Amino acid sequence: EFSMMFKHFDKDKSGRLNHQEFKSCLRSLGYDLPMVEEGEPDPEFEAILDTVDPNRDGHVSLQEYMAFMISRE
């Protein structure tokens, strides 16, 4: 189920989600993330990124995504 969600939000089929795609994916899974303006701080989402994209390369791989989802179950 999680990998299907990942593929759905991987719009460019790159095998990874940019942070915006990842945020959309989390919202569709029921995460209550506040709407913030582009460039505004988003501490809740930043905290999630610290876990799922610790190297802050700007992308979430399928492996990082799956590890995050399994840790939340």
Rank of each mutant, 00 (worst) to 15 (best):
41 P>N: 13
43 P>F: 09
38 E>T: 10
49 L>K: 01
65 Y>W: 06
49 L>Y: 00
31 Y>W: 15
2 F>A: 11
43 P>T: 11
35 M>C: 14
26 L>S: 00
39 G>E: 09
61 S>R: 11
73 E>Y: 15
49 L>T: 02
42 D>I: 05
31 Y>P: 02
33 L>A: 05
69 M>Q: 05
36 V>I: 13
64 E>G: 09
51 T>D: 13
68 F>V: 03
36 V>E: 11
43 P>V: 10
33 L>K: 04
40 E>C: 11
63 Q>Y: 06
31 Y>R: 04
18 N>V: 03
39 G>Y: 04
1 E>V: 03
2 F>D: 04
35 M>Q: 15
27 R>A: 11
56 R>L: 04
40 E>F: 09
3 S>P: 12
64 E>D: 15
67 A>V: 06
40 E>N: 12
67 A>R: 14
60 V>L: 04
46 E>A: 08
42 D>C: 11
67 A>T: 12
58 G>D: 02
72 R>G: 12
22 F>C: 01
60 V>Q: 00
66 M>Y: 04
32 D>K: 14
68 F>A: 04
11 K>M: 14
27 R>G: 06
48 I>Q: 00
5 M>V: 10
59 H>I: 09
4 M>D: 05
28 S>L: 10
26 L>T: 01
22 F>T: 02
54 P>M: 05
35 M>S: 15
38 E>V: 13
45 F>D: 01
37 E>P: 14
45 F>W: 12
63 Q>D: 15
28 S>E: 13
29 L>A: 09
65 Y>S: 06
38 E>H: 14
18 N>M: 03
73 E>G: 15
62 L>Q: 11
29 L>D: 04
43 P>I: 08
61 S>Y: 10
69 M>R: 04
48 I>H: 03
64 E>C: 08
36 V>D: 11
35 M>R: 13
13 K>C: 14
72 R>Y: 15
72 R>V: 06
19 H>R: 03
54 P>D: 03
49 L>H: 00
38 E>D: 14
28 S>D: 07
13 K>E: 15
26 L>W: 00
39 G>N: 13
60 V>C: 02
14 S>Y: 09
30 G>Y: 01
43 P>L: 10
55 N>L: 12
49 L>R: 01
63 Q>I: 08
14 S>F: 03
10 D>E: 08
50 D>I: 01
47 A>E: 14
58 G>P: 00
37 E>L: 09
72 R>H: 11
49 L>C: 03
